[in-house]
Design a protein around this nucleic acid. Structure first.
Length: 483
RNA sequence: GGCGGCAUAGCCAAGUGGUAAGGCAGAGGUCUGCAAAACCUUUAUCCCCCAGUUCGAAUCUGGGUGCCGCCUCCA
């Protein structure tokens, strides 16, 4: 099966055919940088990073643009509260953003444009819209005139009448139509401002994305993504601005929107105050666990957040890690002997499972990036792999070793696509001192066990367990890992 | 009021016409000094309710119930 994606524009799954063969251009709305990101913000990062990785993996040349909104009302307000320069505040949180993204193993986009670097492109686009009659200026503000764009509402499935019926905002009397939205806002005292044909001011919320997408991806591109809450008005307005500017559409062939993170079934959001910053969560769980948690549910479904769910994700991921770890250990051993009859059966079964996993993984990803289903294939592979490794060493000959190597490669390959590390926690940075002390303690315990001094052995094991270090005694010696 | 989404085992979660993936938790077993990990077995006569279409529906249609989102900044 070839790739199919759910296109919000038509509300159905469609075959994915990029505009230019072999190349995919993606634009994803990035954060407004006035604070640390919360888990809800992290979801699209991981989702679109994964989509990008997958497209890349199946051979497309991907250009991925993710913007930073560094000029915005909320930034200005926050900066005023903190007595900081708005652009400096925004720049500071862009740096913090990169740290969070990196903790989640989110690759940098091909281009990360900032609004503040694109004022010329923005004003140029606004001028075109004014010339084309789709925008007008009032007292230094510029508005997009919605009735001038007949296709308005195509993404959100609304008509102008629907919108007016549901209007909850006070209407600015100077606007020609109640739903007209700002392209340019005249500067108020103390706000950052840029020169424009309409006087000093700053861009409205939506125009930046239109201008930057146009600059880096052209008049039409393949995928435009973001959270479902951006469908209206943000993406609807982007479509209006962009398509009115270039005189044709669609701006993007496929629109992809991720579902929300909820807390007690309510959307996690700043205004409700029910959010958890990624930083807070990272204190309890690794980025790998958080990423796994986000990918274990289909990207369009809501995910209800609480610690117990993350704990569940941690345990699930642990299973895959353990399997990968056992594989590493096994492969470091010398292959000996010939294949026994039982070993032969297990090898056959694993070879079959490997093939099935490879097929099913791609089928799952091809079906609208079904990462949840793709991940479940890894569990099936892990079970069959463990089962083989569980057999006695007679089964471990050159033939099985070769197969296990293929399995290990598949694990790594697919983990890479999903952006998961599958590394045991202990590999993620411990000081030489800690490592050394642990080795010492283990050797003491091993001596105790040799003397059948179980009391001492158990004392050490229990003590380490309290420090979240788990010991496992195996015929090959004692193994340890962090909880 | 308008537009949209969701409802699957104790929990999480796939599955959009062919007879319920996977994970966690639970139970029994193998292994182990005891554990842990791993493996094996086991855990939904049924997918919110009602009616319909069909040889056949969790999956399609109609109606209902409940929850959520957007319509204002929000991923």
């Amino acid at each position: 099966m070839s790739l199919r994606v759910y296109n919000s524009l038509h509300q159905k799954k469609e075959a994915f055919v990029p505009l230019n063969a072999g190349k995919v251009r993606i634009y994803a709305c990035g954060p407004t940088t006035y604070d640390y990101i919360h888990l809800g913000n992290a979801r699209p990062l991981v989702v679109f990073d994964t989509i990008r990785r997958y497209l890349d993996f199946i051979g497309y040349e991907v250009t991925y643009v993710q913007n930073f909104t560094d000029i915005d009302d909320k930034i200005i307000k926050r900066a005023q509260d903190l007595g900081e320069d708005p652009l400096e505040l925004a720049a500071r949180f862009i740096e913090e953003y990169y740290k969070d993204a990196s903790a989640l193993n989110v690759r940098k986009a091909t281009i990360h444009p900032k609004v503040s670097d694109h004022l010329p492109e923005i004003t140029e686009m606004i001028e075109k819209l004014i010339q084309g009659g789709q925008a007008y200026e009032v007292d230094g503000d510029v508005y997009f005139h919605i009735p001038a764009f007949p296709n308005y509402g195509c993404l959100s499935g609304r008509t102008l009448e629907d919108l007016q019926a549901g209007a909850r905002v006070e209407v600015d009397e100077r606007k020609k139509h109640a739903m007209d939205f700002a392209l340019w806002k005249a500067a108020k005292v103390g706000e950052p401002a840029w020169d424009s044909p309409w006087g000093k001011g700053r861009p409205g919320w939506h125009i930046e994305c239109s201008a930057m997408a146009l600059k880096y991806l052209g008049e039409q591109f393949d995928i435009h993504g973001g959270g479902q809450d951006l469908i209206f008005p943000h993406h609807e307005n982007e479509i209006a601005q962009s398509e009115a500017t270039v005189g044709s559409g669609p701006m993007a062939k496929y629109w992809i929107h991720n579902g929300f993170i909820t807390v007690n079934a309510e959307k996690m959001s700043k205004s409700l105050g029910n959010f958890f910053t990624l930083r807070q969560i990272l204190q309890k769980f690794s980025g790998d666990v958080i990423r796994f948690y986000l990918l274990a549910t289909h990207y369009r479904s809501p995910i209800d957040f609480d610690d117990s769910k993350l704990e569940g994700a941690r345990k699930s991921l642990e299973r895959l890690r353990t399997s990968r770890e056992l594989l590493r250990e096994k492969l470091s051993q010398e292959a000996v002997g010939g294949l026994t009859k039982a070993g032969h059966l297990h090898t056959e079964a694993l070879a079959e499972q490997l093939q099935k996993t490879r097929i099913m993984f791609f089928e799952a990803m091809n079906d609208d990036f079904n990462t949840a289903l793709a991940i479940s294939q890894l569990f099936d592979l892990a079970r069959e792999t463990n089962s083989l490794m569980h057999q006695d060493t007679n089964a471990y000959c050159q033939e099985t070793k070769k197969l296990l190597q293929q399995v290990a490669d598949t694990f790594d390959e697919f983990a890479q696509v999903l952006g998961l590390q599958l590394k045991a926690e202990k590999e993620q940075g411990d000081s030489a001192l800690v490592e050394g002390l642990l080795e010492l303690i283990f050797s003491i315990r091993t001596e105790a066990r040799k003397k059948k001094d179980w009391a001492t052995a158990d004392l050490i094991r229990d003590g380490l367990k309290d420090l979240e270090i788990v010991l496992e005694d195996t015929p090959q010696g004692t193994r340890w890992k962090k909880k």
